[in-house]
Simulated assay, not measured.
Amino acid sequence: MAKVTLKQKFLKAGVKKYFRTGAEELVLGSYGKKETPALKASYLFQFSKLNIQSGDVKEIGPFEFDFNNTTKADAILNADAKVAEGNVVLTYESLKSGRVVFIQLSLSMLPIIEALNSDSRATDYLKIQEKPRIVNTIFVAVSAEFVERIKGSAGIELNSQKNGVEISLKPSVGGGTILKLVLPKNSTIAYGLAIPVWDGSRTKVVDLNPDLKGAG
């Protein structure tokens, strides 16, 4: 199983580092401006979030907690931080014991672009920012037991963001039960950002470029 290392400024999964500052307030589709304070961690200053009704989500993981390279001080888990799924409390000890693991959820590009281009408030805000960014990837903690239940899932789909983000995990064979994963507030542990790419007249977003610069 791949491992995750937690530091005060970032979460490291494999060779990539993801932002941690302000993570608890963010969800897939949150947008705003990237702040890069000197000698401090870069982070997203959230302006609002996109109304993404549906879209394919890629799940990567599970990731085991690398407690050998993460001190309790580095983990600095927010007191309000929650496990996204499972009857277990998110603590350094529950991560170290293996009862809680991490999964990465990344929203596909098309629903983000469609949501941006149908939301004039979002595009009007982002086009005047020096460093406009959108959250397209998050890391959440789930129980190890829940991971066993989703191993046979062939597809994952984001259904709505009305009352938190709801994820459907579809079985790989017909007739199986579709599992629902509702990500509660304060369940995001780390996040990745995307940069909107505009058309020539800067009226529509036509692409997204990943941005992990300054994560650590």
Rank of each mutant, 00 (worst) to 15 (best):
F10A: 13
L212C: 01
F67D: 09
K131N: 08
K72H: 09
G61M: 07
K151Y: 07
E59N: 08
L105G: 02
T137F: 00
S143L: 09
G61K: 10
K82C: 08
V135T: 04
T91Y: 10
S168T: 09
L50A: 08
T123M: 07
G152V: 02
A79S: 13
D207K: 05
T123L: 07
A38Q: 14
Y125V: 05
I150T: 14
A194D: 12
K204L: 08
S54H: 02
K127N: 11
I103D: 00
A194R: 12
E157A: 10
F10K: 05
L193S: 06
V182G: 10
K58E: 14
L208S: 09
Y31G: 12
G216P: 02
E130H: 12
L105F: 06
N87M: 04
Y125M: 00
I103H: 04
L179W: 05
A81D: 01
I52C: 05
L77S: 01
F10P: 05
I112T: 10
K12W: 02
N209T: 10
L90C: 03
A215H: 02
F10V: 12
K49D: 06
F19M: 01
Y125D: 12
F47R: 15
I178N: 11
K7E: 10
N78E: 15
V147Y: 03
D211S: 03
A23M: 06
F63E: 01
T123K: 11
P37H: 09
L6Y: 12
A154T: 13
A154M: 01
E64C: 06
V83H: 06
N69Q: 12
T21Q: 13
S54I: 00
V205T: 05
F19K: 13
V15N: 15
S120Q: 04
S168K: 06
I76C: 10
V135K: 06
F19D: 01
V88I: 15
K131D: 08
G14P: 04
N209G: 05
V57E: 00
E148S: 10
V15A: 15
P62D: 00
N159F: 13
A122F: 10
K49M: 12
K7N: 11
L116Y: 05
L110R: 09
A41M: 04
V140L: 07
